[in-house]
Design a protein around this nucleic acid. Structure first.
Length: 599
RNA sequence: GGUUCCGUAGCUCAGUUGGAUUAGAGCAACGCCCUUCUAAGGCGUGGGUCUUGGGUUCGAGCCCCAACGGAAUCACCA
């Protein structure tokens, strides 16, 4: 912010004047003063001791004297504690700062221009054989928030999704539907398409296991039984037919995938996530082969005797990696190379971010090297935004044991909870229409879910307790939303009472330390956004919003704004509240969390 | 076993590029505060050898090394 820059250049001047040394502004550390000490900003003078050749206290005192003399409009006073120079900033500076924030509608956000870097973010990446679960929810929310944050830092952003729509697992659902489905459709059953298909995937597994057990009872070894079970044989045959473009299999595949996509779209819409461009593995997996063959010709890869194609990564400290099987079919890595090829053809990508769970760290390490070898500019420094697993109190989520938390169920439960919560509380939502009440419940329920997931450092595994569900008190989305709604209420009532938002804040307003603290926190917002972008870390924005709102709540508790007798003070507090509201709305928006006008 | 990540209050988590005698929130427990712009709130009490042991320096929860504990991965699965 401007105040800091003023001080930093003045400090550089001070050191030049006092000790005759030129010093780089970046080496000057200015930080917020701890609450226990008087002052607002603190200069750490330890780094200058070698230059001043004096005791920390004396050095700090001299610099303080210089600042107070040279920039009295900014530095009103100072005190020295050991090697810490605490500066008291003038009220006028704070008022100026707040006015600046007020004027800037897009405070903290940088706009992207035509020549801004183009960042592509891949997230979600579902399989089309089962509905989305809690792990996908974390992925989607992180990906979406990250996209917003990158855009806020002045990048052009393309959100993309790679759908895993082919392979043996898809054939399993198809086969089970043919055998046990009796022609069931989402329309005929009223079941959401992705769930319907998921049910048949489960049905396949159930019948398959029965067959394996039967064979084993007849004395067949387990390994053999797994291969020889009629269902598995049929599924494999179906995959071959699919690869050979069998019209019937393809038609069924298209029909069932269509159901799944309709289901996914509903879930995505409920979560508030979207994509600019969707890729399908059925369309990209052949491209990968081509690219690999290209690499083979250029001598980047090599072929083994059996005909399989490999990359030698021993020079990078890794192993050899298979890229094409002996029969010429592709593996996972091949598909990702193919997808990269298409993406680069479609967009002039400067940076690629993959939002994928940390179980694939090794995969992306390899992919980065391979893409680099193949000549993709962004390959070397592609970002694998790696996030931890969501764990349940009794261990991991396992679909086989039925311990997955379904995304749709979870969203519905959260909205339901929010609705009950608001009805239980003092007569809230009684003066609003049924429609509006439902909308608020949706916003609050999703806010609780999103914030709960996004406030945790993405790298860490996190624990989710579905029984206790998610709290609405304390460090939660609803607490932040609630405070925002209260701020909006203040501004509404002020307007009704004929107290419009002042154009400028009177310079004579007396500021309390709490108010200054709030202005200081507000001014920090652009740095937080920038840091979130540099570190690919949405959680720091979430925690910032909470800190800000908590601080504001204390302020709110102590003061009355509408009944304030001193007009100057009231004007200042209205502007301060409005700006807290603006920054909270912006910050929550970056996370993809809505804030309601009323709750 | 190799590689990578993690280890902070009973529980869930923060802790900005190393900064200040006393390491922060929330939940849970206990005690106050609704004639007050929305009590989904505020105030207070108790709760910690920041896994352990070394090192780097004016100064370490943060950086380096080692140990211990946990997770992921190390497939012609995706």
């Amino acid at each position: 912010m401007e105040i800091e820059n003023n001080i930093i250049s003045a400090v550089a001047n001070a050191i030049k004047a006092l000790y005759g040394h030129d010093i780089a502004p970046e080496t000057i550390q200015l930080q917020k003063t701890k609450k226990e000490f008087a002052g607002h900003l603190t200069l750490v003078v330890f780094p200058f001791l070698k230059i001043s050749r004096k005791k920390p206290e004396d050095t700090a005192q001299e610099i303080g004297d210089y600042l107070k003399k040279e920039i009295p409009s900014v530095v009103a006073d100072f005190n020295v504690v050991k090697g810490f120079l605490n500066l008291v900033i003038s009220p006028a500076s704070w008022i100026g700062l707040l006015s600046g924030i007020q004027r800037d509608e897009k405070f903290g956000l940088a706009a992207a221009g035509e020549h801004s870097p183009l960042v592509m973010i891949e997230y979600s990446s579902p399989n089309t054989n089962k509905p989305l679960h809690l792990g996908h929810v974390r992925n989607n929310l992180l990906g979406c928030a990250l996209a917003n944050i990158m855009a806020a830092n002045g990048n052009r952003v393309v959100k993309t999704n790679i759908v895993n729509d082919r392979g043996i697992h898809i054939c399993k659902s198809m086969l089970a539907w043919l055998k046990y489905g009796n022609g069931a459709t989402p329309e005929s059953t009223g079941i959401k398409g992705d769930h319907l298909v998921g049910d048949y995937y489960v049905a396949f597994d159930k019948h398959y296991k029965e067959q394996v057990k039967e064979l084993m009872d007849k004395g067949m070894p387990e390994e053999e039984a797994k291969n020889e079970a009629p269902l598995m044989k049929e599924a494999r045959e179906m995959l071959v037919k699919w690869e050979h473009n069998d019209p019937e299999v393809r038609a069924l595949w298209r029909k069932m995938n269509g159901w799944v996509y309709a289901g996914f779209d509903e879930t995505y819409k409920a979560l508030g996530v979207s994509f600019d461009k969707i890729y399908y593995e059925s369309e990209t997996y052949l491209e990968g082969k081509e690219k690999v063959m290209e690499g083979l010709e250029k001598g980047i890869f090599f072929r083994k005797e059996d005909g399989s194609v490999w990359a030698d990564l021993t020079a990078e400290g890794l192993d050899e990696k298979l890229l094409l099987r002996a029969d010429g079919t592709s593996v996972y890595m091949t598909q990702d190379i193919g997808t990269a090829k298409l993406r680069f053809r479609d967009y002039p990508i400067n940076k690629m971010i993959y939002v994928v769970g940390n179980e694939q760290n090794y995969h992306f390490q390899v992919l980065s090297i391979l893409l680099d070898k193949l000549g993709f500019e962004w390959g070397k420094d592609l970002v694998h935004f790696s996030y931890g697993m969501v764990e349940l109190p009794n261990g991991k989520m396992k679909s086989r044991e039925g311990t997955v938390v379904d995304a749709d169920d979870l969203i519905a439960a959260m909205i339901d909870n929010a609705r009950k919560m608001s009805e239980d509380k003092i007569n809230k939502l009684t003066d609003v229409s049924e429609e509006e009440a439902a909308e608020i419940a949706r916003i609050v329920g999703l806010g609780a879910l999103k914030y709960f997931i996004l406030k945790v450092d993405a790298r860490k595994n996190m624990l989710f307790n579905p029984e206790e569900s998610i709290d609405f008190n304390g460090n939660t989305g609803p607490f932040i939303q609630y405070t925002y709604a209260r701020i909006r209420s203040i501004l509404r009532k002020a307007a009704e009472a004929g107290m419009p938002m002042p154009e400028t804040i009177p310079a004579t307003a007396m500021l309390s330390e709490k108010e200054i603290g709030l202005v200081q926190m507000l001014a920090d917002f652009p740095n937080v956004v920038k840091q979130a972008g540099n570190d690919y870390n949405p959680s720091c924005i979430a925690n910032y919003c909470y800190d800000l709102v908590k601080e504001y709540n204390q302020f709110y508790h102590d003061f009355s704004i509408l009944h304030e007798e001193d007009a100057d003070k009231r004007a200042f507090r209205l502007v301060l509240s409005a700006n807290v509201g603006k920054v909270v709305r912006t910050g929550m928006g970056l996370l993809g969390i809505e804030v309601p006008e009323r709750m």
